[in-house]
Amino acid sequence: MSGNAEKFEFSSETAASAEMHVAKYPAGKQQSAVMPILDLAQRQNSGWLTQEIIEYIADYLGMAPMKVLEVATFYTMYNHKPVGKHHVQVCGTTPCWLRGSDDIMNACKKHLGIEKGETTADGLFTLSEVECAGACVNAPVVAIGDDYFEDLSPESMIELLNKLKNGEAVQAGPQIDRQTSAPIGKATSLTDFVGKET
C-alpha cells in the first residue's frame, strides 16, 4: 500500500451505493458495511486501495483507520498495489490443481511474460494465484474481473487472453461444450426426462 497524491473522494455513484449499504444496518452499526464499501472504493480506483481510501472510509464509517486496514488486508480480494485492467486470478487449490491448474498458470506466465503478482507493461493484465474459487466442479477455473472462466485448457486460456487483449467479446463460464455445471456434451443421467415437455 502506498500513498496517492490525488485526494480520494467517492464518486456520486459510489456514494449512492455506499449509502445503500450503510442503510442495511441499524443506526450506529454502519461499520458493518465496511466490506462492500471497500469493494466499491476499489472499483472506483481501478482495482486497488490506497492509504487515502482506507482513511476516507474510516472517516466515512466512524472507524479507526487500523480497523479498516485490518479488514482490507485480511481478505485477498482487496488489492494494495495497482492492478492491470484484467486481474487474472488462477485458482490453485487441490481440485483445480489436480485438473491441471499448474499448466494454466504456466501458460499465463509464458503468454503474458510475467510472474505471479506482476502486471504486464501495457497495464492490461495482472496475474495472481488464488485459493479455492468455489467452482471445483468446473476445474480448472480462472477468475478475471467479476467473471469465472471454467473448464480451461492451456490453449483456451491463451485464446481467452488474446481476446481480452484485443478487446473482443468473451464468453464467461465453461470454455468447453457444457451448460453451466451439467455433464459434458449431453445429459448422462435422468435421460428420460431430458428434452421432454413437462
Binding site: 480497523k67 488486508t73 485480511f74
Partner: peptide, 19 residues
C-alpha cells in the same frame, strides 16, 4: 487507542501499529 491491529492473515498475520 485504536492504532494497534493484526494485519494480513494466516501465516502472514502481523501485529503492528497503523503505518
Amino acid at each position: 487507542v485504536d492504532e494497534l491491529g493484526a494485519l494480513w492473515r494466516g501465516e502472514n498475520t502481523q501485529i503492528t501499529t497503523y503505518l
